[in-house]
Amino acid sequence: MPTLKAGQSWLQAFPPTAFAMVMATGIVSIAAHLLGYEVIGWFLLGVNAVAWPALLVISLCRLLRYPRAVHADIVDHGRGPGSLTLVAATAVIGGQLSTFHLLPRALPWLLGLAAGLWLVVSYTFLAAMTIGQRKPGLHAGLNGTWLMLVVATESVAVLAVAVSQDDGASVPLDLLAISAWLLGGCLYMILITLIFYRWCFVPMTAADLTEPWWINMGAMAITTFAGSRLILAGHHLTGWPGGDLLVLQVLTTACWAMATFWIPLLVALFIEKHVIIGDPLRYTSAEWSIVFPLGMYTAATWSYADAAHLPFLANVARVTVLIAFAAWVLATIGLLRAALRSVTGK
């Protein structure tokens, strides 16, 4: 729950990363459906059917009541990228509806909303970062949430593929999907270079090893997921130059390999912080930054195994989906306990 300053209401302090819960719930729901856990998938769809509209209403009220607070969040180095969780959550909701074959007429509207929000939030944030005169160093200004630029972009690509397939192939939608997929990959290359530099050459403490660094993996996982969906769309991709999908297949394989590469390192750092050093786990909205990558890696690996005709990789997804389920349950318990403490004051 947000920490309130003196004279600050809960609405004013409402975190821009709140939609990460919707993102995580949505992708775990999709992963559950892909792997045959239908009851869990439908249950999580029901959770998001309540959570996304509720958070959207809260965000609109905050925008109308405290527009300066919303603007201050978007133009902040640390908090700004978190505003893009709204974009990704909107696209993930569309992905859930597509996966469960519900409300097909709503999908183009959700795609339009997600793309519109991406334009407004991304360019407002990047423009502010460019012309701002007070800029922190990498240690203070760069964190894992910057990779939400990648996640939000790739989420638009995933939903665009789904809408195009429902519409029976569309040149503009296919071009949007391919362009967003490639743009997200380019943004990842830029940002991960800075992140590697910070990790390896700027001193870090256990306190710096926060949950959003798991988006290092999650950003590549959703890029793999989008690439796999594009491959499965095959030669129906009217926006893909020529008809050869070899480049698409090679790049998607590279994305899956990079996502897999991050997992042992992130697990080792998690153990270092919470087991060896003994820093206790406390619930914050950032905990969903672990759940989302785990769910997305599961969905991405399952889809990549199908697209690349590598059925043995499906066994990896069968393991990681259980881990994603457990992480979602733990994060939900933490959310409910934090909400209870906020109400009771205990």
Rank of each mutant, 00 (worst) to 15 (best):
K346L: 15
N48K: 05
S303F: 00
L281P: 08
Y188M: 04
L111K: 00
L103E: 14
D73H: 04
A305L: 08
N315L: 14
L237V: 06
P280L: 10
P203C: 02
I271N: 13
S342P: 03
R105D: 15
M21K: 08
V291R: 01
L159R: 03
A219Q: 09
T224H: 02
L63H: 14
L294H: 01
L126R: 05
I30K: 01
G239I: 07
L35S: 10
N216Q: 05
A226E: 05
T25S: 10
P311F: 08
G168P: 05
T130A: 11
R229V: 00
A299D: 01
F14M: 03
G185P: 00
V247W: 15
H309W: 11
L183A: 09
I290F: 13
M21R: 03
W10E: 12
E38V: 15
L110A: 03
F201C: 08
W256M: 11
R337T: 12
Y37M: 11
F325Y: 10
W146I: 07
M217F: 09
P203Q: 07
V75L: 12
G334S: 03
T85W: 11
I30Y: 01
V121C: 07
F292D: 03
N315H: 14
A221Q: 04
P311H: 06
T253Q: 14
A69Y: 04
A339W: 07
V75M: 12
A32D: 02
L269V: 13
P212R: 01
Y123R: 12
G144H: 01
L251N: 11
D174V: 04
L176P: 00
G82C: 09
L11C: 06
D279F: 14
Y123Q: 14
K273R: 15
D76W: 11
L310S: 10
A13P: 10
P2K: 02
M217R: 07
A268M: 10
H71R: 15
S83W: 06
V316A: 10
R105H: 15
I30N: 00
V291E: 00
P108F: 05
W214M: 01
T145M: 12
L269M: 15
W256A: 06
P293M: 01
S179I: 07
P241G: 04
D244P: 05
V22C: 14
L107R: 01
L60R: 11
V319K: 09
L230T: 02
L45I: 13
V321F: 00
V70S: 13
I40S: 13
T130D: 12
I178D: 00
W181M: 05
T153M: 06
L103T: 11
L173P: 02
L119Q: 14
I27T: 03
A299T: 00
P241Y: 10
M21F: 13
T153F: 07
Q249F: 07
T85P: 02
G95Q: 10
A177Q: 09
